[in-house]
Amino acid sequence: TLFEALYDYEARTEDDLSFHKGEKFQILNSSEGDWWEARSLTTGETGYIPSIYLAPV
């Protein structure tokens, strides 16, 4: 399942991933609670993103 960003997000740590509204992600690991490891389909970068900023596509 792909997810789309509902809002912009600016990374706060080196493990976080910055993204823009409308960016799409492949989720790599969603077992860490509210922060999911994801790969951006726009940039190819991976990192942790807040799941509350996402909606399934």
Rank of each mutant, 00 (worst) to 15 (best):
T1D: 12
T1I: 13
T1P: 12
T1N: 12
T1M: 14
T1G: 12
L2P: 04
L2N: 05
L2I: 15
L2A: 05
L2G: 02
L2D: 04
L2T: 08
L2S: 04
L2W: 09
L2C: 09
F3D: 00
F3K: 01
F3R: 03
F3A: 04
F3W: 15
E4Y: 14
E4R: 06
E4Q: 10
E4T: 08
E4G: 03
E4L: 09
E4H: 07
A5I: 02
A5R: 00
A5T: 03
A5G: 03
A5K: 00
A5N: 00
L6S: 03
L6M: 11
L6I: 10
L6H: 03
L6V: 08
L6T: 06
Y7C: 13
Y7H: 10
Y7W: 12
Y7R: 09
D8M: 04
D8N: 08
D8Y: 05
D8R: 04
Y9K: 04
Y9E: 01
Y9P: 00
Y9D: 01
Y9I: 03
Y9T: 01
Y9C: 05
Y9R: 06
E10W: 09
E10Q: 12
E10D: 10
A11N: 05
A11L: 02
A11R: 08
A11Q: 07
A11P: 05
A11K: 09
R12K: 14
R12F: 09
R12S: 12
R12P: 09
R12G: 08
T13G: 15
T13V: 08
T13H: 15
T13Y: 15
T13D: 12
T13P: 05
T13Q: 11
T13N: 14
E14F: 09
E14Y: 09
E14M: 12
E14I: 12
D15Q: 14
D15C: 15
D15K: 15
D15R: 15
D15E: 13
D15L: 14
D15F: 15
D15H: 15
D15M: 14
D15P: 05
D15T: 15
D16Y: 14
D16P: 02
D16W: 10
D16A: 15
D16I: 12
D16S: 14
D16K: 15
D16L: 10
D16V: 15
D16M: 14
L17Q: 03
L17S: 02
L17N: 01
L17W: 05
S18Q: 04
S18E: 04
S18D: 04
S18K: 05
S18V: 03
F19V: 06
F19S: 02
F19G: 01
F19I: 09
F19A: 06
H20F: 12
H20D: 06
H20N: 11
H20E: 09
H20S: 14
H20G: 09
K21N: 04
K21R: 10
K21A: 11
K21P: 03
K21S: 07
G22N: 05
G22K: 04
G22W: 05
G22V: 00
G22Y: 06
G22F: 05
G22P: 00
G22C: 05
G22H: 05
G22T: 03
G22L: 02
G22M: 03
G22E: 03
E23M: 06
E23S: 04
E23T: 06
E23G: 02
E23D: 15
E23Y: 04
E23N: 06
E23A: 06
K24D: 01
K24N: 06
K24T: 08
K24P: 03
K24F: 12
K24C: 08
K24Q: 14
K24A: 06
K24I: 15
K24L: 15
K24E: 05
F25V: 02
Q26G: 03
Q26F: 14
Q26T: 10
Q26S: 07
Q26E: 15
I27G: 01
I27M: 03
I27K: 04
I27L: 06
I27D: 00
I27W: 01
I27E: 01
L28V: 09
L28A: 04
L28M: 08
L28S: 04
L28H: 04
N29H: 08
N29Y: 07
N29I: 07
N29G: 10
S30A: 13
S30L: 09
S30H: 11
S30W: 14
S30F: 15
S30V: 12
S30P: 09
S30M: 15
S30R: 12
S30C: 13
S31C: 11
S31A: 12
S31D: 13
S31I: 10
E32C: 13
E32M: 14
E32I: 12
E32H: 13
E32V: 11
E32T: 13
E32F: 12
G33Y: 08
G33E: 12
G33T: 13
G33C: 10
G33S: 13
D34A: 10
D34Y: 14
D34F: 14
D34S: 09
D34N: 09
D34C: 13
D34T: 10
W35H: 08
W35Q: 07
W35A: 05
W35N: 07
W35R: 14
W36R: 02
W36C: 04
W36N: 01
W36E: 01
W36A: 02
W36T: 02
W36H: 02
E37V: 15
E37K: 11
E37G: 04
A38Q: 00
A38Y: 03
A38T: 02
A38I: 06
A38S: 04
A38L: 02
R39N: 04
R39F: 09
R39M: 12
R39W: 05
R39L: 10
R39V: 12
R39C: 08
R39H: 06
S40T: 02
S40A: 06
S40V: 04
S40Q: 05
S40L: 05
S40I: 05
L41Q: 07
L41R: 03
L41N: 04
L41M: 12
L41H: 04
L41Y: 05
T42R: 13
T42F: 09
T42S: 12
T42Q: 09
T42N: 09
T43H: 03
T43A: 02
T43E: 01
T43M: 01
T43K: 03
G44E: 04
G44F: 08
G44Q: 06
G44K: 05
G44T: 04
G44S: 05
G44Y: 06
G44I: 01
G44V: 01
G44C: 11
E45P: 00
E45H: 12
E45R: 14
E45D: 09
E45M: 15
E45N: 12
T46L: 07
T46K: 10
T46N: 05
T46Y: 08
T46R: 10
T46G: 03
T46W: 08
G47V: 05
G47F: 06
G47T: 03
G47P: 00
G47N: 03
G47L: 05
G47A: 04
G47Q: 04
Y48W: 15
Y48I: 09
Y48S: 07
Y48L: 12
I49K: 00
I49H: 00
I49C: 05
I49V: 15
I49G: 01
I49S: 01
I49E: 00
I49Q: 00
P50N: 15
P50C: 13
P50A: 08
P50V: 04
P50I: 06
S51Y: 09
S51N: 07
S51A: 13
S51H: 10
I52T: 12
I52S: 15
I52D: 14
I52F: 13
I52C: 15
I52M: 13
I52N: 15
I52L: 12
Y53G: 08
Y53H: 08
Y53R: 05
Y53F: 11
Y53T: 06
Y53D: 04
Y53I: 09
Y53L: 14
L54R: 00
L54F: 10
L54W: 01
L54N: 00
L54Q: 01
L54D: 01
L54H: 01
L54T: 03
L54A: 03
A55L: 08
A55E: 10
A55V: 14
A55Q: 14
A55N: 07
P56H: 06
P56W: 05
P56A: 09
P56K: 07
P56D: 05
P56T: 05
V57A: 08
V57F: 07
V57W: 08
V57C: 08
V57L: 10
V57D: 06
